[in-house]
């Protein structure tokens, strides 16, 4: 009797293992063939059928890998979020979130990562520096980059620190949108502050022309024409150029930050990437 039950148990056990193994093999072959979309679905099936936490975790890891290969980092991050528990998981998650341009979430994952370890490695420090740059927190980014430099063995720390100080000394100083608005009381000045020369000249010329037209019509005794053609149009263009100056300043700040971040990213990756 015992022998019979043992045989049936072994038979069913082999079938279960085979079922999981087969779906995993299908997913692996699709992955190897470069069909990452289908492979991701089959790995999800492996997770769905998984009989243990380890198998489920492996399936999700592979699924996240598929999305990374597809360049779909937001989906990779969403998959990683489902199983992330360790330092390495959160580091991967932060990287995917950074690559998906979800910088706030990347910063949150870095904090969780730091909470899981006493010391943090160079990879995470590098991701953290890049993320802080994108969040325009340049002082914190420099401080993190200096920690990263102190962990480097290839080059002397003081030399790297000097290069980092030189790099971050060129970081963009954000221009104030409020100042741009205040300067725009004289039409065009706000645009000049945001280095938008052509828009500044246009705003000044247009508003000056409308004001002059209004004054000319008053002198001519055509008060209605002055009101409609001068004041009426000026009431639209004057506040409009103020808002435009604010937008131009915002755009200028973003452009400056993007340029610096690209330069910093290149330097940091060349220097610290494994």
């Amino acid at each position: 009797m015992t022998c019979r039950y043992s045989t049936i148990f072994i038979f069913l056990f082999v079938l279960t293992i085979a079922a999981n193994g087969q779906s995993s093999a299908v997913a692996d072959s699709l992955f190897a063939a470069g069909d990452y979309t289908s492979a991701a679905v089959e790995y999800e099936r492996c997770y769905y059928l998984a009989t243990s936490r380890t198998n489920g975790r492996t399936a999700l890891e592979n699924k996240a890998q598929c999305y990374k290969r597809m360049g779909s980092f937001d989906r990779a991050a969403a998959t990683l979020e489902r199983y992330a528990t360790t330092y390495d998981d959160y580091q991967q998650l932060a990287l995917c979130q950074y690559l998906a341009s979800d910088f706030e979430k990347a910063a949150a994952s870095i904090v969780r990562c730091q909470a899981l370890a006493d010391t943090i490695g160079t990879d995470l420090l590098l991701i953290k520096t890049l993320t802080l740059n994108e969040l325009l927190l340049y002082d914190s980014a420099l401080s993190t980059a200096l920690t990263l430099a102190s962990q480097q063995m290839k080059r002397p720390a003081f030399e790297l620190a000097h290069q980092l100080y030189t790099l971050y000394s060129t970081r963009p100083q954000a221009k104030s949108e409020q100042t741009a608005r205040r300067l725009s009381y004289i039409p065009g000045m706000g645009h000049l502050y945001a280095r938008q020369w052509d828009l500044g000249m246009t705003a000044f010329t247009l508003n000056a022309a409308l004001l002059s037209f209004g004054v000319w019509q008053v002198i001519e005794g055509c008060y209605l024409t002055a009101w409609v053609g001068g004041a009426g149009l000026l009431s639209a263009t004057y506040p409009g150029q103020m808002r435009s100056a604010e937008a131009a300043t915002r755009q200028y700040n973003r452009q400056q930050a993007d340029t610096f971040n690209a330069k910093a990213r290149q330097f940091l990756l060349d220097t610290f990437a494994p």
């Binding site: 001519e220 055509c222 008060y223 024409t225 409609v228 053609g229």
Partner: peptide, 20 residues
């Protein structure tokens, strides 16, 4: 209405054939 009033004003001040 403002534009029509402006036309009327210009008509009175400058006449019908004035560019304004």
């Amino acid at each position: 209405g403002g534009l029509m009033a402006t036309t009327a004003e210009n008509y009175v001040h400058h006449g019908a054939t004035h560019w304004m």
